[in-house]
C-alpha cells in the first residue's frame, strides 16, 4: 500500500459535489455541495462551529459514512468501491478523548493495527518503542501502563502513536486536543506541529479553535451549516471578508495576547 502511495503525488482525497443527508431527507442536510481536494503532504484544517458538518466531512473520508450524492475519492478510488477494512487501515484516526482500549496496555494500543496486519513480534515491538519515543513517552516507563494510569495529555499522545503505527499516508484528526487543559493543549499543539512537518503525512484536522487552525494548517477550510464558505492559507485567512471568517477572527481578538 505504501509503495503505491509513493508513486502517486496528486490529490490523496477528493470530494466531488458531495452532499450528505440523514435518512435521505434533503431538508435535513448535514453537508451540501462539497467539492474539495486534499493534496499530498498538506495539513488541511476543517474549521467550523459545532454542528457545521466538519466531523461528518471527516467521517466520509474513511468510509465511516458515505455520501448521499456525489462521491468521495481516496487515492482516486471512490470510498464505495474500497474494501473498507483496507481503506481504514491505511488511514490513521485520532479522536477527542483518544478512544484508547482500556483493557489494553499502552504498547498493545499502539500495536493495534500492526497486530491486525499480523506483523511479527519483533517488528511490532520495535515500531511501538519508536513511536512512543516519537510522541515523547519513554517506552520503559509507559509501555506496560493502562490508559487509566495516564493523564489526558499522555492518552492523547498514545492516540497519535496508535494512529501512526502502520505508517499510513493519511491522518484524520477530530479535535484531538479539544478535551485537554489549555497548558497541555498548547504543549501538544506545538509538538504536533513540529511532528507533522517532520513526518510529511497528509493530515486532515478538525477543530473549532481558530488559533489551533492557524498554528497547524497549511490550508484552512471554513464550514458553515454544511457548506464550505472559505478556503485559504493561514496567512490569507484572516484577511477574508466573509462574515463567518470575521466571527472567528473576533473570537481570536476576544482573547488578547493568546495569538500563537
Amino acid at each position: 500500500m505504501n509503495a503505491k502511495t509513493e508513486e502517486f503525488l496528486g490529490n490523496l482525497i477528493e470530494f466531488r459535489e458531495v452532499s450528505f443527508h440523514i435518512n435521505d431527507i434533503p431538508t435535513r442536510s448535514i453537508l451540501s455541495g462539497i467539492s474539495l481536494a486534499v493534496s499530498h503532504g498538506e495539513t488541511l484544517v476543517l474549521l467550523g462551529r459545532s454542528g457545521s458538518g466538519k466531523t461528518t466531512l471527516l467521517r466520509l473520508m474513511n468510509g465511516m459514512l458515505f455520501p448521499t450524492q456525489g462521491e468521495v475519492l481516496v487515492q482516486q478510488r471512490s470510498t464505495c468501491d474500497w474494501d473498507l477494512i483496507r481503506l481504514r487501515r491505511g488511514i490513521g484516526y485520532v479522536i477527542q478523548e483518544a478512544g484508547l482500549f482500556p483493557h489494553f496496555t499502552v504498547a498493545e494500543n499502539v500495536a493495534l493495527v500492526p497486530t491486525l496486519e499480523k506483523w511479527d513480534r519483533g517488528r511490532t515491538a520495535a515500531r511501538v518503542s519508536e513511536l512512543l519515543i516519537l510522541v515523547g513517552l519513554e517506552p520503559t516507563e509507559f509501555a506496560d501502563r493502562r490508559p487509566r494510569e495516564l493523564s489526558g495529555g499522555q492518552r492523547q499522545r498514545v492516540g497519535v502513536a496508535r494512529a501512526l503505527a502502520a505508517d499510513p499516508p493519511i491522518l484524520l484528526m477530530d479535535e484531538p486536543f479539544g478535551a485537554l487543559d489549555p497548558v497541555t493543549r498548547a504543549e501538544l499543539q506545538r509538538e504536533f506541529s513540529a511532528l507533522a512537518r517532520r513526518l510529511g503525512k497528509t493530515i486532515v484536522f478538525v477543530t473549532h479553535d481558530l488559533r489551533e487552525a492557524l498554528l497547524l494548517a497549511s490550508r484552512i477550510v471554513l464550514l458553515e451549516a454544511g457548506r464550505i464558505v472559505a478556503m485559504a492559507s493561514p496567512q490569507e485567512f484572516l484577511r477574508l471578508e466573509h462574515p463567518e471568517v470575521r466571527a472567528f477572527a473576533a473570537s481570536l481578538e476576544a482573547a488578547p495576547g493568546a495569538t500563537p
Partner: peptide, 12 residues
C-alpha cells in the same frame, strides 16, 4: 469513543 476508534482503525 472506544468503538469508534476500533471501527476507524479497520477492525472487522
Amino acid at each position: 469513543a472506544v468503538l469508534e476508534a476500533a471501527e476507524a482503525m479497520g477492525m472487522t
